[in-house]
């Protein structure tokens, strides 16, 4: 019994309630989902074990392949555009002494809005009748006549743009926080050496905010796997699966086709993918990376 009054054990008392809730809300459903991927369950009624049939079907599913490719494109897009813009803006903001708070708030504002509201704003802006297209048509310009959400060639990028617009302000804030931690003496020394603004960014700021930067890269890669809400609201994965992503496809299998077993198999695939990413970052940390 002494162990329970041990000083080292006290922390567990605080962790236990959260761990208990996690066990019921995440742990058990996740294990159930792992088990369901080997069945033909349709969400109701009998559950029949079918071995790896769902996984065999997975590898032959052209729309899942399309969704995986779209997720990869999505990840690359998010690793480049919002990161690039956020880094630049955060760095430029460090040089602004007056009115900085206004810009920080303005950039962060879309992140505070619910995804449904963000989506409705952009959907309305790109609407062929009520949006910018309709406005331009009325003044005689043939511009934005067709919504980019409804064109096969642009739908994925249009959705990624809206999600990126909402997300990049968050990156600005975390990069800015990292930049304020950098010792000012380093910049003063660089000034004496005659370093340019870019050189200071390249050789001081970027290496010094590396933990924050790598963290942002990690969360972008992980968050890009279950991306769902923006796709679901703006395009539903269409037209013609052009903006389909894995999570939306999984949802469709479970709640439109009632193929819960197959949907669980997709979920299992996503789970292992995320585990691999987390493991990779763990290995980098073990190898001495400062993350």
């Amino acid at each position: 019994m002494k162990i329970f009054s041990n000083k080292n054990f006290v922390a567990w008392y605080f962790v236990f309630p959260v761990a208990f809730i996690h066990l019921f809300v995440i742990g058990i459903p996740s294990l159930a989902s792992l088990a369901l991927c080997l069945t033909d369950w349709r969400g109701l009624g009998e559950i029949n074990y079918i071995g790896f049939e769902n996984f065999i079907e997975l590898f032959d599913d052209r729309y899942l392949k399309k969704a995986i490719i779209n997720n990869v494109i999505w990840t690359i897009a998010f690793l480049t555009v919002p990161v690039g813009i956020a880094l630049t803006c955060a760095y430029l903001l460090t040089g602004i002494k007056r009115g900085q708070m206004f810009f920080r708030l303005a950039f962060f504002f879309p992140y505070m809005l619910a995804s449904v509201i963000n989506c409705q704003i952009w959907k309305y802006l790109f609407h062929p009748i009520h949006g910018l297209g309709g406005f331009f048509e009325r003044i005689g310009w043939d511009l934005l006549a067709v919504s980019p959400f409804t064109m096969k060639s642009t739908s994925l990028f249009a959705v990624a743009f809206v999600d990126g617009w909402h997300f990049w302000g968050f990156l600005v804030v975390i990069y800015l926080t990292g930049m304020y931690q950098v010792d000012n003496h380093l910049y003063e020394a660089a000034d004496i050496e005659g370093a340019t603004k870019f050189q200071k960014f390249r050789y001081i700021t970027l290496p010094m905010i590396r933990p924050v930067f790598v963290f942002s890269i990690m969360i972008i890669i992980i968050w890009s796997v279950p991306v769902f809400d923006y796709v679901y609201i703006l395009t539903g994965g269409g037209p013609a699966y052009s903006s389909e992503v894995i999570a939306n496809y999984m949802y469709s299998q479970a709640f439109e086709r009632f193929d819960v077993g197959y949907s669980s198999a997709i979920g299992t695939l996503m789970f292992f993918y995320v585990m691999i990413i987390v493991a990779l970052f763990g290995l980098f940390r073990k190898a001495g990376w400062d993350i």
């Binding site: 609407h127 062929p128 009748i129 009520h130 067709v146 919504s147 959400f149 409804t150 064109m151 269409g238 037209p239």
Partner: peptide, 13 residues
């Protein structure tokens, strides 16, 4: 008018 507009237009519209 077009496939794209058909995709973009809802009940009220």
């Amino acid at each position: 008018g077009s496939l794209e507009n058909y995709y973009a237009i809802g009940w009220d519209d």
